[in-house]
């Protein structure tokens, strides 16, 4: 059975309308109008126990809103969300005890107190038995290298140290699912790397299900075999990262290098996009076309030196995708 199931989920926010300028300010003294914002628009997916899923999308795509519905903070406007077989909002406390949540941009640690004090308070709130707490704390302290700062006030920590502490705090009670909202935002390269390796390890070795939102693809490449991509509240893609290219219709590039310029070459299986004489670039039409097909069609008799197949950069694929969408939207 799926550990998380979302079906036809929608979330609509009401926001007061603002009027610009002096007259507008006077006007809003007396009137109150609302605009409706559809942050999540008919999303369905299922997540199995032990999966690591990346929830990807640009700002305002409704990623955080979806996390908030799965953690019981928000109630869907329509559709259903089930986490561990329960509706999260109505079973908020039971649900909260079995999940861990990390918000990248808002700390759950007590600002003026040492890290250890926040951990200790969580021990009471989550009712963690003392031996298990000690064991988990020791393990997490080692894995995340926190021993040097666990007794320092949170306000003195670097962002990277704080994020490690946040993640450790969310794992102290051995949650079945770990939700992370933008866990690597603002971190430097080294800190990002530590967080990614750690999360991948927690998922692999302890079987903790991980759902993370991000707009950094490297997070997904290193932690999450599965990707859910959203934009404008709608689901764009759900599947393995390597299938994303095909799904989004992007094509692989094939580069053929010859000893000498063989002259113009036209092929049915591949489309010539750039001709540098001795080096020619082709686009492969579909995932089914293999290099072998191309080479077979090309036949022998050419002074072929090297064959290079370039997978498109995933970052670029997504960027192109969004750009196309913006352009498409610009045309009335």
């Amino acid at each position: 059975m799926a550990i998380i199931a979302a079906s036809g989920v929608e979330k609509i926010f009401r926001q007061p309308k603002r009027h610009a300028g002096f007259g507008g300010a006077i006007r809003s003294l007396f009137s109150r109008e609302f605009t409706e914002v559809r942050a999540v628009d008919g999303i369905s997916f299922k997540i199995e126990s032990g999966e690591a899923v990346g929830y990807l999308g640009p700002n305002g795509a409704g990623k955080s809103t979806m996390i908030k519905m799965m953690t019981g903070i928000l109630v869907p406007s329509s559709g259903t969300v089930e986490v561990l077989g329960r509706e999260p909002h109505n079973n908020r406390i039971t649900n909260a005890a079995e999940i861990g949540v990390v918000f990248g941009q808002r700390s759950q640690l007590w600002w003026d107190l040492p890290v250890r004090d926040s951990f200790d308070l969580n021990r009471h709130i989550y009712d963690i038995p003392a031996p298990r707490f000690t064991e988990n704390l020791a393990r997490l302290t080692t894995m995340l290298d926190m021993s040097s700062y666990i007794d320092r006030p949170v306000r003195q920590l670097s962002l990277g140290q704080r994020m490690r502490a946040e993640i450790a705090m969310a794992l102290l009670h051995d949650p079945k699912i770990l939700f992370l909202d933008e866990p690597t935002i603002g971190l430097d390269v080294v800190a990002k790397d530590v967080v990614r390796k750690f999360l991948a390890e927690v998922n692999r070795d302890r079987g903790t299900t991980i759902i993370l939102t991000t707009h950094d693809l490297v997070d997904i490449e290193e932690i999450c075999p599965r990707l859910i991509m959203v934009d404008d509240g709608k689901l764009l893609f759900d599947g393995e990262l390597k299938h994303l290219r095909t799904a989004l219709g992007s094509r692989r590039r094939l580069k053929l290098e010859f000893g000498s310029d063989p002259g113009p070459i036209a092929l049915k299986t591949a489309q010539l996009v750039a001709d540098e004489g001795a080096a020619k670039h082709f686009l492969l039409d579909s995932e089914q076309t293999s290099i072998l097909d191309v080479l077979t069609e090309l036949g022998s008799g050419h002074d072929l030196k090297d064959v290079k197949l370039e997978e498109p950069d995933i970052e670029e694929v997504i960027r192109t995708f969004y750009q196309n969408k913006v352009q498409a939207g610009a045309v009335p």
Partner: peptide
């Protein structure tokens, strides 16, 4: 406004 309320809502306590 700051979102700290969200962090409180994910705790297993009233």
């Amino acid at each position: 406004r700051m979102g700290t309320m969200d962090a409180i809502l994910v705790k297993p306590i009233s």
